[in-house]
Amino acid sequence: MQYSYGWEKFHSAVLTLAGPGSQAQRLSDAFVFSLSHIRPEENLPEQLRADFGVLMLALIQKQAVADEGNAQATIFAMDEFEIHQSISKIIGLYDSLCREMPKDY
């Protein structure tokens, strides 16, 4: 399956978002452990790549301080609305990717 790795990483991200912890921590974990491993050119259909790129850039806007990464610096500076928007985008991209997967996957 051409996009199975991307699907697996998005699936893992959504499960992380539904898990325990603060929304900011769950979003950070979804980025670090799942989404950051996706190579859009190889792992996503062409029609999802631009939206994925916009999401990823939005999650790394701030410079890292000390031992945190740019994603952690960005996410922990977001307000509740921005975090909710990012989570909604991840779920929407996952939904779109699921529609691209074969029915028996």
Rank of each mutant, 00 (worst) to 15 (best):
D29T: 11
T74E: 01
K9R: 09
R49D: 02
I90Q: 06
L97C: 02
Y3N: 00
M1N: 11
Y105V: 09
L48K: 02
V32S: 15
Q72G: 13
L55W: 02
K62Y: 10
D67E: 15
L35W: 08
M56P: 06
W7L: 04
S36P: 06
E46A: 13
G6C: 01
G53N: 03
L59Y: 02
E82P: 06
I83R: 03
I87P: 11
D67Y: 15
D67S: 13
A71P: 08
Q72Y: 15
Q72N: 14
L55T: 00
I75A: 00
H84T: 14
R49P: 00
D95C: 12
S86W: 01
A58G: 13
L57I: 07
F33I: 09
H11D: 09
M1Y: 07
E8D: 03
E8G: 02
L44S: 05
R99Q: 15
A73N: 00
M78S: 13
K103V: 14
A64S: 05
I91A: 14
F31K: 11
S96N: 13
I60T: 14
I83C: 04
K62A: 14
L17E: 09
L17Y: 08
L55F: 08
S28K: 07
G19H: 04
N70R: 12
P45R: 09
I38L: 00
L17S: 09
I90P: 07
F81R: 15
H84I: 09
K89D: 09
N43I: 01
F52I: 06
S34A: 12
G53I: 05
Y94T: 07
A24Q: 13
S36E: 12
Y105L: 11
I83Q: 01
Y5M: 00
S36G: 11
W7A: 05
K62M: 12
L15N: 14
D104P: 04
D29P: 06
R39F: 15
K62F: 11
D95M: 11
D79R: 06
I38E: 03
A71N: 13
R26T: 07
S88F: 14
Q63W: 08
F31T: 09
P40F: 08
L44E: 03
R49T: 03
R49F: 03
A30Y: 07
M78E: 13
Y94R: 09
P20N: 14
G21R: 07
E42A: 09
A18E: 07
